[in-house]
């Protein structure tokens, strides 16, 4: 029998499986109402963010409580949207630090390139996204807004303990794997 010649029979052939599919879908949706919920009632309920979530950027301090950022500018140059700007300054003891450190969060895409580029573990992304503002200007964060009091995710790293430059409290030869400064006036082997 040629179905195309009998439209009613043809419609019935299509209608029966379609109805079945519809009912199965309704059933599946209905069954979902008994499952565990994935959405949370934000803001009444807080959101779980994994520790490596890439949110609000912070500047951390080393285990001694000194600013970790040495103003090397690598975060700024790694930033694909060029939203980091800073200026190097030097403390009396020779430590480099940022005179200002500005992130324009209205441009930031939270890609984490700055964190990857940072040689001192200073700049870190945190599990926090609650940064909404009514005024875009408020999204420009200065160093005071960025600097926290702890070491962040990296608890131990201390750049100046491995770098050769002498700073206050750490002379030449006192960094990790360093010999005492050479006496250039000796010719002894």
């Amino acid at each position: 029998m040629d179905r195309n010649k009998h439209p009613i029979i043809n419609t019935a052939y299509q209608l029966v499986p379609a109805t079945g599919s519809l009912l199965r879908t309704l059933g599946t949706v209905f069954m979902h109402s008994f499952r565990k919920r994935e959405t949370v009632s934000y803001p009444e309920e807080s959101v779980y963010l994994p520790p490596r979530y890439r949110g609000r950027i912070i500047l951390t301090r080393d285990p001694d409580g000194e600013e970790r950022c040495v103003a090397c500018n690598l975060c700024a140059v790694a930033c694909p949207v060029d939203c980091i700007s800073l200026q190097k300054a030097e403390q009396d003891d020779g430590r480099w630090y940022p005179e200002f450190f500005r992130i324009n969060f209205s441009r930031c895409i939270f890609c984490g390139m700055c964190e990857e580029a940072c040689p001192t573990s200073a700049i870190q992304l945190t599990p926090d996204f609650e940064m909404g503002e009514y005024d875009r200007q408020q999204l420009v964060y200065e160093k005071e807004d960025l600097l926290i009091d702890g070491p962040g995710k990296d608890h131990d790293y201390h750049f100046y303990k491995v770098a050769g430059m002498a700073i206050g409290g750490k002379d030449k030869g006192q960094a990790k794997d360093e010999e005492a400064p050479e006496d250039v006036r000796t010719l002894l082997p």
Binding site: N73, A76, V77, C79, V81, D82, C83, I84, S85, L86, F100, R102, I103, N104, S106, R107, R136, Q137, L139, V140, E142
Partner: peptide, 16 residues
């Protein structure tokens, strides 16, 4: 070509 901070160096004056 790697000039950085274009969208931040002037942001303290005006974010626009």
């Amino acid at each position: 070509h790697r000039y950085s901070g274009r969208t931040a160096m002037r942001a303290h004056l005006n974010v626009n």
